[in-house]
Design a binder for these strands. Structure first.
Length: 271
DNA sequence: CTTTTGACCTGACAGC
DNA sequence: TGCTGTCAGGTCAAAA
């Protein structure tokens, strides 16, 4: 479910409920996520006050002065603020219970998500240390994308999905941005021209920003009882539209398999 | 070093 | 209504 805009919106949504609050305890109903939830988590974070809630790539960092919880939502994870007394559902694996009665509840049917704990600088953590620039910062520039793709033979779609190249760009937004930029997902990254890199950087920014904006208004409040926060209703230009007419030129959208994952493009609009 | 593949899980949905 | 097969928004580790 979550791509960068969803993670960003989740972060913004939960932060006001967490910052300055004390963690009373952690309830782990099922520790078997992508990696086993550390048994020390409850001991480490309980009694601590949450100082900040930030995002790096698709990781959510919940920091205290004793250490930082690093959360990832995987393919199907979601976080919400609910009353701790609320009966947990089948896939509500972990609660961070706050002093006062609320809790941050992680739901994750597929269990590809993860929760880690570090006492060091989380950005120096093994999983985060080598991640590329955030796509919404100046660091992710046309020059950077051009330089980093030189000599690379893999498809540009796969290159965009590689977190070491750029942080947090997932399959939907990679495909949508490539459409906007007029570049086929199958093109070898190293063959993109400078102008194409320039358009692609702008397209990635625009696509992500738009989704974040729509998410902010879409996702209502994180106290909400139900109302599963689904995907943002971005009207896909290509993603999932195999054989449907291109919204620009009416040519049927094509689906190709790159690796194990689908890529979509308009054979006329994208070169 | 770069690129590809396999692995981790469960649910939703199409087709028989 | 079942059953089977396919696919899914992620990404790490190992193999090629």
């Amino acid at each position: 479910m979550p791509e960068l805009p969803e993670v960003e919106t989740t972060c913004r949504g939960i932060a006001p409920h967490l910052i300055g609050r004390r963690v009373a305890r952690v309830v782990v109903r099922n520790p078997r996520l992508r990696w086993r939830v550390p048994t020390s988590l409850g001991r480490e974070i309980s009694g601590r006050i949450i100082g900040s809630v930030t995002r790096r790539a698709k990781y959510i960092l919940i920091a205290t002065d004793a250490g930082t919880a690093i959360l990832h939502l995987g393919m199907s994870g979601s976080l919400r603020i609910v009353a701790a007394a609320r009966p947990p559902g089948k896939w509500d694996h972990v609660d961070f219970v706050l002093a006062g009665g609320d809790c941050l509840r992680l739901r994750d049917p597929r269990r590809f998500g993860s929760i880690l704990w570090t006492r060091q600088d989380p950005l120096a953590h093994k999983l985060l240390a080598d991640i590329g620039p955030e796509p919404l910062t100046r660091e992710f520039s046309r020059d950077y994308l051009y330089d980093v793709t030189r000599g690379r033979s893999r498809a540009i779609r796969d290159t965009l999905l590689d977190a070491h190249i750029v942080a947090g760009v997932g399959n939907i937004y990679a495909n949508e941005a490539l459409f906007r930029a007029g570049v086929r997902p199958t093109r070898a990254a190293g063959r993109l021209t400078f102008d194409e890199c320039k358009r692609l950087v702008a397209a990635i920014r625009a696509t992500l920003n738009r989704a974040i904006r729509s998410g902010g208004s879409t996702l209502r409040d994180y106290h909400a009882a139900d109302g599963e926060a689904g995907y943002f209703q971005l009207t896909a230009r290509v993603y999932g539209r195999n054989a449907d007419p291109c919204r620009v030129c009416r040519t049927p959208i094509r689906l190709v398999r790159l690796g194990q994952r689908s890529a979509f493009y308009c054979p006329k609009c994208q070169v």
